[in-house]
Amino acid sequence: MNSLLAISVASLLSSGQIWTHEGPPAQVIELFTSEGCSSCPPADRFLSKFEHKDSLWKEIIPIAYHVDYWDHLGWSDKFAKPEYTQLQRLYYAYDLVGSIYTPGFVVDGKEWRGFFNWMNRDLPTRELKSAEKLQLVRKGNHFQLKFDKQGNFDATLIFLSNNRFSKIRNGENRGRSLEHDFIAMERLQARSGNGNWQFDLQTDLEDIDAVVAWVTKPGSFERIQTVAGMIE
């Protein structure tokens, strides 16, 4: 093997990772938030507390969707995406949530208002159902997801960013410095009848810290299996 080929192979191997998970899926905590909302920083801090938990990824998966419907009130959230506003509206249309607001929590596909009970913010208990292995393989910006169960399933892949800071100059949070974790930077979806999916991230991995994936039945919001981890 010549030196150039050896370098190329080494580079390919170093850019690859494998994550696997089997047994009960992790509990997924989704937060709809905005830098333009004065009630959101406490919810953002609540989500950030999971960053150093031993249960992260295997037992719990936090995700922060920054919505854009606050942007016209004096401050444009640089992390906001219209598709996350649409996702929240979809949850409302399917009666997963009672209204559209921030901060809004959805835990395992159901609205969770426990955050607003400052005396008891325990997450909902749930019945643990084991599922087959879900494996995610990364080679550079290419991601292959494989579920050890045959049938029609939808797959969702979300790329997260941690430890991002913003100095807010206008709007309800004017003058505040905000820290954000588990920011949903990209969200990809696909359907498969053989338990295999291929995804390509079109943006740079430089600002991506973690990746999350799950599978559901078509038309369902219940995660059958999850897998997640940090990107090296």
Results as ranks from 00 to 15, higher is better:
178 L>K: 02
127 E>A: 10
128 L>Y: 09
156 T>C: 08
184 A>I: 01
125 T>Q: 15
129 K>E: 14
145 L>A: 08
190 A>Y: 04
155 A>L: 02
164 R>S: 07
149 K>S: 10
151 G>F: 03
162 N>C: 08
157 L>T: 06
167 K>D: 10
160 L>R: 04
199 F>M: 01
179 E>T: 09
147 F>V: 09
160 L>Y: 01
166 S>Q: 15
180 H>P: 01
185 M>I: 14
158 I>T: 13
132 E>D: 10
167 K>M: 14
161 S>N: 00
169 R>T: 14
178 L>F: 04
153 F>M: 00
192 S>P: 11
148 D>R: 07
185 M>V: 12
146 K>A: 12
131 A>E: 04
134 L>R: 05
148 D>E: 15
150 Q>I: 12
159 F>A: 04
137 V>F: 06
137 V>M: 11
171 G>L: 03
191 R>I: 05
195 G>K: 01
156 T>M: 04
138 R>G: 10
155 A>S: 15
132 E>A: 11
129 K>M: 14
160 L>H: 10
157 L>R: 03
137 V>D: 03
167 K>S: 13
150 Q>H: 06
199 F>C: 04
172 E>K: 02
186 E>W: 00
177 S>M: 07
173 N>V: 04
195 G>L: 03
171 G>K: 03
163 N>W: 01
172 E>N: 01
150 Q>M: 03
131 A>G: 15
161 S>A: 15
183 I>W: 05
131 A>L: 07
187 R>M: 14
150 Q>C: 10
191 R>Y: 12
128 L>N: 09
170 N>V: 01
143 F>I: 10
133 K>P: 03
141 N>R: 13
140 G>L: 06
178 L>D: 01
137 V>I: 11
128 L>T: 05
154 D>V: 13
188 L>K: 06
128 L>W: 14
128 L>E: 15
142 H>F: 08
166 S>W: 00
